[in-house]
Design a protein around this nucleic acid. Structure first.
Length: 499
RNA sequence: GGGCGGGUAACAAAGUGGCUAUGUGGCGGACUGCAGAUCCGCAUACGAGGGUUCAAAUCCCUCUCCGCCCUCCA
């Protein structure tokens, strides 16, 4: 089983061959921290988290570097407006963004270099580029000369001549070619600045990624990624800088994530449709959001909408119901059994589980095809339900095996993560609601836990049902449903789950 | 103008030469006091036109429509 990845550089799916055996070195362009994390950030970083997890699943040792752009025009402008230091301002938003992404259940990268702390490396890299004849100084600025780098455009497929034809760039006085870009910018008043061989100033945006990736990963490294929007000019420029400075190949594989739209529109400040992660988490469980992401391929542009999340939530509930059935069945104590003791239903189910795992892995091996992988999870769900439907007795060994497989595959898609941050305020609130319902039905639940209280309510409901008191029975069910508990009557009696 | 990627059933979204994708929704049936869950069955597809092939949603050509990038952007 070999892993194939679509490489934006070659525009082909390629078999993954690590630079260093059993290791994966990946660099992903991170956030410019001047406002809260939005759903687009979440989508991109979810995709790379999933990619990293899958590499780990395949047994690779992954080093994942993601930069933090904490010095930039927008940050400086916003900080000046508030009258505070730019770095203080960006620190604040970096903390907020990471807190939001943490809550979303996206694992952090291994290293988060900050632009402001990597300036000496950027200066060194810029000097090398000048020494190698690919850049020039112009009145305190330093520009990269795109004409000198013959491979310029190899990532985006753009030719310099074609770019010229469609150019809508003002002929910049300091540049030799309008597509030359700044490696170093002369400082202006009220800006953070650093000393350099070209006087006080600050680095250009593109140079930070070239400097940080080569500093922490070495050249060449395996994977460089980011949003689709960064392909040109940002990534094109990164390649030019790194290769001009070192003469080595930069990144082997380029991965670009399709940009998310909101209700069919591009997400932008001008439309005013930016969806913040923080706001989203008030209404939706993080797992629902992640599952929504997993249902679209990373290279496709998913369309975010309430409807799409509702859809994801319903599908996810199906998966959880099966998981809970398996947990219940697996926890029954039954000894080991011999293969010959299995009935056809059980044998068939075991075989299907093994097949699902194989299909799941080959879906993921094919350029991280999570939508297909999700469909296999649903095949698993359907098969499990059929198994339970036909089973005359339940075998805990089989359920354990099925459960382990489901948890293993699910974890690759970030499913079934137990929330580390227990929300005690919400839990207390829910217990009070349950207690209030119990009071209405004259059940004393003083000092009882939520689970015990619900069980008592369901016991009361069963009593009502035997008396054919449908009013009380349906009342209890509806009241619990309203506060978020799903009640189902089964042959084994009533069961409940949190929706 | 140049570059990149698309158009699949009601919606979302995989597949990419022959085999039911999948989810949500719809219809019918089973189960149930009812509901829900679950199972069984059904319907609705591959933008248009040509071509290659025994066979095309899938390969080739032409056309058409849409999105994104070329300015900061995940």
């Amino acid at each position: 089983m070999t892993l194939k990845i679509y490489n934006s550089l070659t525009k082909e799916k390629e078999e993954f061959k690590p630079v260093e055996k059993n290791k994966v070195k990946m660099y992903v362009c991170g956030m410019t921290v001047y406002s809260d994390a939005h759903i687009g950030h979440a989508r991109t970083y979810f995709a790379f988290d999933m990619i990293r997890r899958y590499f780990e699943y395949k047994g690779f040792e992954v080093t994942y570097v993601q930069n933090i752009t904490d010095v930039d025009d927008k940050i400086i402008a916003a900080a000046n407006k508030e009258g505070i230091d730019a770095l203080e301002y960006s620190k604040r938003y970096a903390d907020r963004c990471f807190a939001d992404l943490d809550k979303l259940g996206i694992r952090r990268a291994d290293i988060y270099p900050k632009a402001s702390e990597t300036v000496p490396d950027m200066i060194k890299l810029t000097e090398k580029i000048i020494d190698n004849g690919f850049a020039y100084e112009s009145d305190g600025d330093v520009y990269f000369s795109v004409e000198k780098f013959k491979d310029y455009g190899k990532l985006s497929g753009q030719k310099l001549d074609d770019l010229m034809a469609g150019a809508r760039i003002d002929p910049a006085d300091k540049k030799k070619n309008p597509f030359d870009f700044a490696l170093w910018k002369k400082s202006k008043p009220d800006e953070p600045s650093w000393d350099s061989p070209w006087g006080a100033g600050r680095p250009g945006w593109h140079i930070e990624c070239s400097a940080m990736s080569s500093k922490f990963l070495g050249l060449p490294f395996d994977i460089h990624g980011g949003g689709m929007d960064l392909r040109f000019p940002h990534h094109e420029n990164e390649i030019a800088q790194a290769e001009a400075a070192t003469g080595k190949d930069f990144a082997k594989i380029w991965i670009h994530i399709g940009l998310l739209t909101v209700d069919g529109d591009k997400m932008s400040k001008s439309i005013g449709n930016i969806v913040n992660v923080k706001d989203l988490l008030e209404k939706w469980d993080s797992e629902v959001i992640r599952f929504f992401f997993a249902q679209a391929h990373y290279r496709s542009p998913p369309d975010f909408s309430e409807k799409a999340l509702k859809n994801a939530k319903k599908g996810l509930a199906r998966i959880h119901r099966v998981k809970e059935k398996l947990v219940a069945c697996a926890s029954r104590k039954i000894g080991e059994i011999n293969d010959k003791d299995l009935v056809p239903n059980e044998k068939n189910y075991l075989k299907e589980i093994v097949d699902f795992k194989t299909s799941f892995v080959s879906a993921m091996d094919d350029d991280f095809n999570t939508p297909q992988a999700v469909s296999i999870i649903f095949d698993f769900v359907n098969s499990s339900n059929r198994f339970f439907e036909k089973a005359t007795k339940l075998n805990s060994y089989i359920c354990r095996f099925a459960l382990d497989t489901l948890l293993e595959l699910g974890s690759i898609l970030t499913l079934f993560q137990t929330s580390k941050i227990k929300n005690s305020i919400l839990d207390d609130d829910l217990l009070k609601k349950v207690q209030r319902i119990a009071d209405n039905y004259e059940i004393n639940v003083k000092g009882k836990t939520m689970e015990e209280s619900i069980d008592l309510l369901l016991k009361k409901r069963e009593e009502a049902r035997t008396k054919k008191d449908w009013g009380t029975a349906d009342g209890i069910r509806n009241d619990l449903d309203k506060i978020g508990f799903e009640i189902q009557d089964t042959v084994d009696g009533p069961v409940w789950r949190k929706k």
